[in-house]
Amino acid sequence: MSFKAFLKKCLMEYFVITTCVTAAIAILGQALDPTARFGYEAYWSPLTFGFVGLIPSFITYSRKELSFQQALLRKAIHVVVLEVTLVAFGFWVGILHAFSDTSLFMLSVFIIYLAVNLISWQFDKKDAGEINKTLKSLQGRSEQ
């Protein structure tokens, strides 16, 4: 994958991540601290976490084609680095204070990670469906 294509993919993922972070904040906030009040600065939170969450994505970038095992290994390393980076960032900006917060936060990050990958998978599945449809039409037409 070219670096340009990789950045394009990151940009698409960024929007998915920020949406998922917003949803996670809403769900966790309503469940854990429903009376909390905050100002406009709170809107920066999903954007910032989305950006910080994208930085470890460079682990998955490779100019060369990775084998299935290499890709799987990089994904595993990516999720670990992602968790560590976001937890460290969370403590640094002061939204995390205790272990109980951290474990819930890490679970949210993992769920968002799965959601982003699932959405990406769904796009690929849709493309595969269209390709299969066109292939069938092409092969059927040529058999006539």
């Binding site: 890709a71 799987l72 690929d124 599945k125 493309d127 595969a128 299969n132 292939l135």
Partner: peptide
């Protein structure tokens, strides 16, 4: 002639593909 280069070392005949499906890391 309906041939497609699908990787560094493979060229595939599009008329012989039954189906494609996504696998890990953006590959099919």
């Amino acid at each position: 002639r309906r041939f497609f280069r699908c990787s560094k070392s493979f060229v595939i005949n599009l008329m012989k593909i039954d189906n494609v499906r996504p696998i890990l890391n953006g590959r099919f």
